[in-house]
Design a binder for these strands. Sequence first.
DNA 1: TGACAACATGTAAGCGCTTACATTGCCTCA
DNA 2: TGAGGCAATGTAAGCGCTTACATGTTGTCA
Lengths: 345, 345
Amino acid sequence: MNNFSLKGRPPTIEDVARMARVSTATVSRSLNTPHRVREATRLEVEKAVLKLGYTPNFGGQALASNRTNTIGAIIPTMDNAIFATALQALQETLAAHNVTLLVATSRYSPDEEEGQIRNLLARGVDGVVLIGTGRAPSAYKLLEARGVPFAILWSIPSDTERLMIGFDNAGAAADVAVRVMERGHRRIAMISGLMQNNDRATARVDGVAAALREADLEMRPSWLIECRYSLNHGERAARRLLQSSSRPTAIICGNDVLAAGALMAAHELSIAVPEELSITGFDDIELARAVFPQLTTVRVPHRRMGAAAGECLLRWINEGTRPKSMTLPTQFLERQSLGYMRPRE
Amino acid sequence: MNNFSLKGRPPTIEDVARMARVSTATVSRSLNTPHRVREATRLEVEKAVLKLGYTPNFGGQALASNRTNTIGAIIPTMDNAIFATALQALQETLAAHNVTLLVATSRYSPDEEEGQIRNLLARGVDGVVLIGTGRAPSAYKLLEARGVPFAILWSIPSDTERLMIGFDNAGAAADVAVRVMERGHRRIAMISGLMQNNDRATARVDGVAAALREADLEMRPSWLIECRYSLNHGERAARRLLQSSSRPTAIICGNDVLAAGALMAAHELSIAVPEELSITGFDDIELARAVFPQLTTVRVPHRRMGAAAGECLLRWINEGTRPKSMTLPTQFLERQSLGYMRPRE
DNA sequence: TGACAACATGTAAGCGCTTACATTGCCTCA
DNA sequence: TGAGGCAATGTAAGCGCTTACATGTTGTCA
């Protein structure tokens, strides 16, 4: 049927041009700017494209146009459902504009992240998505020197010079603390993700600490445990908190996974939640509803963040001007794991 | 400090060549095949590269070498932790060889998947990773016509003509069913993911059905519910199962998320697990241990699968011959949600 | 009917890199 | 000392595409 396909070598624009009896320029135009080509010609080209199964060669296109239609994202890890969701939304947004997403991970290391930035830049991405602000100035320099648009997600806009799309981690965390105190709790501990190079984790801790201070409470150093974001680490941290002679009546967790871990610890130690111990999460991932009791947590707009990042970046790339940063709302989500402090017997 | 960087235009291999007083060919060689260059020259080039902050242009490289050092993966969705984990492992393996991973999603639709295959091919990926076997022959033709190596994950090797790296879904599911029956259960229901175009889900159902048949039991049609992989859908399905007049004593779930949903339903209906109802999952994602009671499930080697895919594909690309398919072991994981059937009172 | 837009298409010059082939310089050995 | 070989480097031809500019082709209007 297809007597033109020289086995092995994919068809080039030249093959299409020959078949459609036009020049390669016309083929290129029919494909990229159809309105600049006569209808009949366009159809002829289209026919040839279909017949040959032609698909533009990416390298050639990138080289000639200095555009790759690719956006890169660097996330700390794929293991985390919340990044995955945002990425998914980002990808869907980009796909609608025929832009492909390149994903890399930094494993929470600024150095690795910088390496990945280089990598993406080398691949000629048209834009970059980054998480948080925990990185060296040199990382920004890389991007800025190349003039590549980039968006910073997950952190509250703090810098008018950059495009940031995030939410108020500190504020939301403070809000959680306030609500916990409203339930009568005074003995409040916190389990946080590792704070080094992680401004989101840091902001959440700061928010809680500020709220406590406001209420003339103090966050005891021994009641603030930092650990990796995993079920096991959360469980271990909670166990430490709960096995000490005088234990907290509420544990505020930096994210839902840690909270779920804390819940496991409570289960094992036969401490009833929320009757004897309140636990709160953060992020509202699916897990938060799967555990028992369901986690009281903070809903974070991950999908919207991903989608907005895609739109803003695309706009920036196409129009050349940096869109304004945006702060998305979070929402305190009351479920079952936060209860009233029981009066001492 | 850097008086060579003409603002705006990234340095090219020519700039490096000029600075190091060698030809572009030598620069290229120093970078790609260092052993073919005199040590002193190499150092000179290296110095220039560093000073200019040179990074090879991807398009040029791809165009000239017909290689992109990129591998594409198409997964049904990023929302699923299990794919994310495999992807993460794949990415790490590839990164160690300086290969970048391009991720696309198909949303469980063979048509979308085929579109993404075209897309990846157009971008000149050196290899492709696919999940499962539920796709039209035309999808394979695309890949084969271009001679692009590809690996199929998650399904048991069934086709000696292709590289498949997976596990025995049917066998593992049958094993679960056997264990459930060993606990005395006879009234066994199943909640499965949507089976259309999903050979993994189908195989799991088939495995269970076969095991039941072997034991002279039959899977009642109304006790097999298909639904999307989500907590809500799992919960709803379980509720339907549990609210009928005569309910099953065990529910085998096609994955952990569905099982967690079923657990939620049991909670709400005050049905004790595992005393009154047994529930099993599949996949062993983190969630399986976070719920209470913890899920008895099947451990699936997602990380290994991802890593193996990377290695095999890289080998295939570099050596030109298709590596052998492999079947990875799964493991039945006894936890708390499967119990003995209580004798009727 | 002829001048002149406006549109459609073609020509050809790169984009930045790799690599086959040519050249140079040096060492070895008879 | 000179032929031959090898290692190091240079030269230059593309890879497939886009696009500025040149050229050709209509249609319009006085």
